[in-house]
Amino acid sequence: MPTSYKVKFWEHRHRPDRKTPWMVRWTVAGREFSESFLTKPQADGRKAELVVAAACSSASGRKTPFPGTSTAGTT
């Protein structure tokens, strides 16, 4: 599996017309990933987990960018 240290995080996206309006977005080696949440604190918590994982882990895989992240939430 290809690996990459190029991880970027974006600000939360708020989509009030959706069932899960708060979106956490990030890229790994130019590929976009996202997960949606019902509340902003949930989105904040997940983003914090991802930031810590990016800072503490070895290279991230493109298909599963961080522990606990599946490709089902990718865009």
Rank of each mutant, 00 (worst) to 15 (best):
E11D: 14
E11H: 07
E11Y: 07
H12L: 12
R13S: 09
R13C: 05
R13I: 11
R13W: 06
R15L: 13
R15C: 03
P16D: 01
P16V: 04
D17K: 09
D17A: 10
R18C: 07
R18D: 08
K19T: 15
T20S: 14
T20F: 15
P21K: 04
P21Q: 02
P21L: 01
P21M: 02
P21E: 03
M23A: 14
V24S: 02
R25V: 06
W26G: 03
W26I: 07
W26Q: 06
W26N: 04
T27G: 02
T27Y: 05
V28R: 00
V28W: 02
G30H: 02
E32T: 12
E32M: 13
F33H: 05
S34R: 11
S34V: 07
E35D: 12
E35G: 07
S36N: 09
F37R: 03
L38I: 09
L38Y: 10
L38M: 14
L38T: 09
T39C: 09
T39K: 15
T39N: 11
K40I: 14
P41H: 03
Q42T: 10
A43L: 02
A43E: 01
A43G: 00
G45F: 12
K47R: 14
K47Q: 15
K47M: 15
A48M: 13
E49M: 10
E49H: 10
E49I: 08
L50Y: 06
L50H: 01
V51N: 00
A53L: 10
A53G: 03
A54F: 00
A55C: 08
A55W: 03
C56N: 10
C56F: 09
C56T: 10
S57N: 14
S58N: 13
S58F: 13
S58W: 13
S58A: 13
A59P: 05
S60N: 09
